[in-house]
Design a protein around this nucleic acid. Structure first.
Lengths: 272, 272
DNA sequence: AAAATAGTGTCTTTCAGACAGTATTAA
DNA sequence: TTAATACTGTCTGAAAGACACTATTTT
């Protein structure tokens, strides 16, 4: 076989697999946006206004603009987060940490057509209540605990519904990623205001890990990790609600990795 | 606005974003397949037989079958790995560890059209030389070091070429993931034969991390981590090439996470 | 015999976690 | 005044890394 006919063969072969012709796959982004409210972990959900899964809660997301106004994946995630919730960059979206979580593409995960979804994970400081975007019936911060990801169905705002599509799995993966990231990166500060106290930082760990932490040991540990936090020299205006001295304020340091890491106390179950 | 016209609005809105109509995005899988050969880390590459980047080396990959014979993403990755290299499940592909690495979708990463690629990372024990698959001109295990990912262009089998598309970045991300996974999971055993010695396991760490490790401390450390390895009761038939006693043989244990982890010695640079 | 390697013992330093204790603030 | 809380001190045990050493094997 000559090189030319080889190439012709290759081109025919490639053309046969060009999905534009007859094998359409659509790409969406979905966002697991986490924040801390009232000391507990919340996730941003939208209520679907259309079938399938109409009326159920789902992660915010939508189609990636492919060719016309083509956008990169992180852009698409930020756009969906803004569009579907009414949160603007001005309203605090600028301080949100965004990272890719994973891609979910099992055939049948969307009953309408073949959709491959790139999931993003967002860590947000406390943000205002969202308003429903263009194709959502509602939007709200939902307490993660209330979604009962480990148990069977559960209740949240008056329903017993689970999340639409495979979003429960995506959320579970996002939570595990968040718990893990808190161990070896300083990303807990992404949940905090620009200046925060060590007890506030500890509250983030407690909310995300779902475990109590020893206040004294945590304090000393955080200060001993180089670059985790740096002092602003200020303190809070008042002590705690129920008494106690005023706490010193810190801002995020320049470390990108925590060394040594802050390991979760009880991981024995996950090891095997 | 009535509920009905609401729904009609939503459907028009959704239809406007259905990429099947006018905004085509194609999805491929690419595989970063790593193995250890002659004590150094190698990656599986194919030489492109078609433009763009014709003649350059690239990661094995191809289009995901979307609707006709729809396949899940890990299936697509395994299929591409087999197709493009001639390696069969019988030839050892069954023992390959496959995990999702990340998704790369910057507009312009493929000059022909908008392509979003889901990258997979594979850890393989020593496998036979590949043969070129249907749309590759050649396929080979390439020493990772020779690709000079941190420096500028480099030489490998007679060329000074870099990898096609954004595959250098994908490979770099895969390498960092592999280095990191060796710290806190027992996946180093995925690079080994079913029965292996502690020095062989150490060679995996040395090859992936690119750092010498203290033999005695490594030995004691591996045996002290619960579930990392378990003894077969056997030893090697002969001692080392240049002398030394025969080594005991082990198989992978039942741990999914290493606790405590085996941390890389020098990560000071990466921390900030 | 010489050199290399497998595997073990020991010491020092670091760090996690338990616990106690002091100072400061709100109620 | 009481209770809660921020923060520090101290002790113990686990673990990492440096180093020395013995035993076994090949050349």
């Amino acid at each position: 076989m000559s090189a030319t006919s080889d190439r012709e063969h290759e081109e025919r072969y490639l053309a046969a697999y060009d999905p534009r012709d007859y094998d359409p796959v659509s790409v969406t982004v979905d966002v697991v946006a986490l924040t801390i409210r009232d000391g507990t972990l919340h996730v941003l959900l939208v209520r679907r206004g259309n079938p399938p899964f109409e009326g159920m809660w789902a992660l915010p997301g939508g189609f990636v603009r492919g060719v016309r106004d083509a956008e990169d994946l992180p852009e698409a995630a930020a756009r969906e987060l803004a569009e579907e919730t009414g949160l603007s960059v001005k309203a605090g979206l600028a301080r949100v940490h965004l990272e890719q979580l994973g891609t979910y593409g099992a055939p049948g995960r969307d009953p309408r057509m073949r959709i491959i979804s790139v999931a993003y994970l967002a860590f947000a400081p406390e943000l205002p209540d969202p308003r429903a975007g263009s194709d959502a019936a509602d939007a709200a911060w939902a307490p993660v605990e209330s979604l009962g990801l480990t148990e069977a169905a559960t209740q949240w705002p008056g329903t017993t519904r689970r999340l639409a599509f495979d979003h429960a799995r995506i959320l579970a993966d996002g939570l595990e990623r968040a718990r893990s990231k808190l161990e070896y990166t300083p990303l807990a500060t992404a949940f905090c205001a620009p200046a925060f106290t060590i007890p506030e930082l500890r509250a983030v760990y407690v909310a995300v890990w779902g475990e109590e932490l020893h206040a004294g040991n945590f304090h000393r540990k955080v200060l001993s990790v180089p670059g985790f936090v740096e002092s602003t020299g200020e303190t809070t205006e008042r002590g705690g609600r129920r008494g106690g001295p005023r706490a010193r304020l810190y801002r995020p340091g320049d470390a990108r990795l925590l060394h040594p890491a802050l390991l979760r106390p009880s991981r024995e179950e996950e090891i095997r």
